[in-house]
Design a protein around this nucleic acid. Sequence first.
DNA 1: AATAATCTTGCAAACGCTTTCAATTGGAGA
DNA 2: TCTCCAATTGAAAGCGTTTGCAAGATTATT
Lengths: 347, 347
Amino acid sequence: MATARPSRRKVSNSVTIVDVAKAAGVSYSTVSRVFSGYEFVNEETRERVVEAANKLGYVVNLQARSLAGGRSNIVGLLAPGLDNGYITEIVSGIDQELAQHGLDLMLYTTHRYPGKEAFYVKTIANGLVDGLILLVPLVTTNYIQALPRQDFPYVLIDQTNSTSNSPSVDATNWQGAYDATTYLIKLGHRRIGFITGYLELSSATERLDGYRAALQHHRIPLDENLTVMGDYLTTGGYAGAQKLLNLAERPSAIFASNDLEAIGVMNAAHQRGLRIPGDISIIGFDDIPQASLVYPRLTTVRQPLVQIGQVAVRLLLERIDTPEKDARRVTLSTELVIRESCAPPAG
Amino acid sequence: MATARPSRRKVSNSVTIVDVAKAAGVSYSTVSRVFSGYEFVNEETRERVVEAANKLGYVVNLQARSLAGGRSNIVGLLAPGLDNGYITEIVSGIDQELAQHGLDLMLYTTHRYPGKEAFYVKTIANGLVDGLILLVPLVTTNYIQALPRQDFPYVLIDQTNSTSNSPSVDATNWQGAYDATTYLIKLGHRRIGFITGYLELSSATERLDGYRAALQHHRIPLDENLTVMGDYLTTGGYAGAQKLLNLAERPSAIFASNDLEAIGVMNAAHQRGLRIPGDISIIGFDDIPQASLVYPRLTTVRQPLVQIGQVAVRLLLERIDTPEKDARRVTLSTELVIRESCAPPAG
DNA sequence: AATAATCTTGCAAACGCTTTCAATTGGAGA
DNA sequence: TCTCCAATTGAAAGCGTTTGCAAGATTATT
């Protein structure tokens, strides 16, 4: 799209249905029917065609098929990047489910076309892909408005656009945060620091709300100093931890809005010579693969990431196959995974 | 491909060059020329066409373009999976470079079609993609033989197929391992454990050779017990570390063939209450993002992963644009990154 | 002023496949 | 034996572009 590159005419030595038809002594329509799985083809004819095709090494041209048939069997995925276990786990779920249905994956990282997202979405949605999965889209409406048709199939992951009724998948962020906070409280913690996620995302605000609700429910007064801004990144977690640990009366536990942040918190703690969980308890969110690889292994709120990806694909297929049905929103349950980064407070 | 899904005729309310042509009062060839960047179009005409296109919301149909023009501007990437910082870093480099050239990325994880890789490669290489990048392909020949044409453009990453002269990119594995080992020796270590990578891969054998060469060069006798099998995975590193640490005379340093393994080693060490690097030094290979997030930060041999991806794309474009030129093989330099996981031996 | 060279533009033929429509064939039912 | 229906196949019309060829328009040359 951007930089047009020279385009030579294809040196097309590839064998087409016409060649196969000739070799099998049938019309090319028949060959097409054989390979597109049409049922009313004489068994004998079919065999003859398949044999001829094998001999010639025929392989279907997907481009042509989709141009003619109106369906590419390719799904587009718009993701912010691949630099994050959270994302790659979901992508892996998407990938699995797609393979299951014989669909292919076209990957687009949204940082590629800053400012031109809309144009980009328009282009790929125009024939190239049958549907779009938007993974944690920051500027949802940008994308959605760019869709070529009102009813172009798409599904949102982990971004609830409250204004629209888009099909979407997410997890119980509020409940997860509530559970994590309650767990710390039950361990005896009273001063619990919280590092927010990137608050433009609904998941981040929901987790914050869950944290607050748990405190309130257990009649622990909310200390504003104990909530610091984060961005869902390790660096943000590190910075947030510094602030919290510099507090005169520092927290005995820190709840980071995701595991990446939690790892940043661990780094900060290690650096100060604080023992985890002896001196400070740390809990994360997501349960990315890394969470069980750090030392000590991170206690966290597990999101069923792979499953989220799978469900997204299923929802998308629903949209593609039965556009008339209402969009569904699926919210999967989170689960507290207790490992070794939390303990009762020292005092 | 696998499970054929129902295919309804496209509800094509999309606007085509014909519509634009009509609105602008020119032939559709002219519209095509305007959008395909043909230079000899009257400026005035061009403006009229662009205006009409904007008004109608025209967007090119990439499928049709590539069917007619013989080029899709899509590159296929075959990767084992996305569950590894090593891979995602390279993919990120590929992605960047692709975007630079206006190319799109189609992602295929090879575990999707066990046993049917050949058929699969045939299909996507038949019109859908202009070239293929094979990322750490285990069964290289399977893929290469499946290519529809002898000269179908492809490039190998980090797998040197010595028998063929394929275009490929890799890093100085031998030298990197030599450097790492030498570094440990210079620190005073004499008993240095080594955990191999997955030995089917050339990178793994090269690293093993580099390790041995360094020992030999410094006249340290090779103790076979100090070399254990690994698989480039964290679990393998953990298991390997157990074996090494159970040795009667255990090593004072462990060189893991990649960072994932090194993290496994760290876990094993932590679990035994060994201090890193006080009680044991650990060094890895790759410098994946995680390497600087673990505690203590991992000393490792850096591969320019992002750059490897970028170079791969450039090599691929060379193949596509000038197939007559000889295939190149590029080997990028590794670099020792000293962080905090190594120190002189205790005694 | 006449001729040649250069721009511009339109026409029509692909690209490889799907799908509608109609025709043919071979019984089954009457 | 005649009619009707289902199974099977072929012909042809696209799907939305690109591009070679040729003709008309312009401008440069002599």
